[in-house]
Design a binder for these strands. Structure first.
Length: 293
DNA sequence: CAAGCCTCCTGCTTGC
DNA sequence: TGCAAGCAGGAGGCTT
């Protein structure tokens, strides 16, 4: 399930395999993949045909490809199961859930870039760059329209730990819910929310205003550490749903301490990890070292 | 206005 | 064995 580290691995893959290439043909085989595009699949194809990919970007779980039109980007969200895959042109790569195909031409010949997405929560859109709304010290760089309200992410050099901690401390909303809110802090999904809270020793349902600023900053640092370590391992994979552009899995699954470990001993205190239903999904935590206060 | 639940979707797993 | 229900999850939309 792609969260920040997995999306960053994909972005790096696209930087290496798509930047500098010209889009010569675009086809959409499942219209739901372009549901965010106001003019649908036709508009998506028309806007991108004959554009050259000039760079990449990412904020939280959103990523984008810049083009030679400075106001136009190919923005994407992988949702639950989205993948970008590189393959030879012509030959059928056999992707079961292919949604979009971009045929590219570059100095080294031609190749196809596929957007593959089993559960169809992901999307792609050709959209304008807009003035940023979120930044630090009054400076907000331009971002794709879909990213306008997404918070600066935890691994961004502009991430303002003190300001985010203060904002979370000012709300009574459960801390896990806040970690998952992409307009408060970007890049964390269910897996890394549970891992971050485990590291910081905080119960997921603790109200934000019951966590002191020092502890809150510790939580944000724990979250940044978890994301950084996972990125270094190539991301987390539980199944074949997350792979890089070459179809390879990450290795961080072994580094998980709480997520997916119901009834197994907590690596810190050996108490059995508990799983409870929370906000329509699961929370995994250690009842002994993440006590509710 | 904010908080939080529901829905979208597919395929794997579990239970009867 | 076969079918149906359960489960997983990001984020936008809707209700309270």
């Amino acid at each position: 399930m792609p969260e920040l580290p997995e999306v960053e691995v994909v972005r790096r893959g696209l930087a290496g395999h798509a930047v500098g290439w010209r889009i010569v043909a675009v086809s959409v085989s499942h219209p739901r993949a372009t549901r965010r595009q106001p003019g649908g699949a036709v508009e998506f194809c028309d806007l991108l045909r004959e554009r050259t990919i000039t760079g990449t970007g990412r904020r939280g779980k959103f990523l984008w490809l810049r083009t030679d039109d400075p106001d136009l980007v190919l923005a994407a969200h992988l949702g639950m199961s989205g993948q970008f895959r590189v393959a030879a042109v012509g030959a059928d790569p056999g992707f079961r859930h292919a949604r979009v195909r971009l045929d590219l031409q570059g100095p080294q010949g031609s190749r196809s870039l596929w957007f593959v997405d089993q559960r169809t929560f992901g999307w792609v859109a050709a959209e304008p760059m807009v003035p940023g709304r979120v930044g630090r010290a009054g400076v907000a760089p331009p971002v794709p329209a879909s990213v306008r309200d997404i918070a600066v992410d935890l691994l961004d050099p502009d991430f303002d730990e003190a300001a985010v901690a203060a904002r979370m401390h000012a709300r009574a909303v459960a801390i896990k819910r806040q970690l998952l809110d992409q307009e408060i802090v970007a890049g964390i999904g269910n897996i890394y929310a549970d891992e971050s809270l485990w590291r910081a020793g905080i119960h997921p349902e603790t109200p934000g205003d019951r966590i002191g600023l020092r502890r809150m900053r510790g939580l944000l640092r724990a979250a940044a550490d978890v994301l950084g370590e996972s990125l270094a391992a190539g991301g987390t994979s539980f199944d074949s749903l997350y792979v890089n552009v070459n179809g390879e899995s990450g290795y961080f699954g072994r580094g998980l301490n709480a997520y997916g470990r119901e009834d197994q001993p907590c690596p810190r205190c050996a108490s059995p990890i508990r799983r409870v239903s929370f906000a329509n999904r699961s929370s995994h935590f250690c009842p002994a070292c993440q006590r509710r206060r």
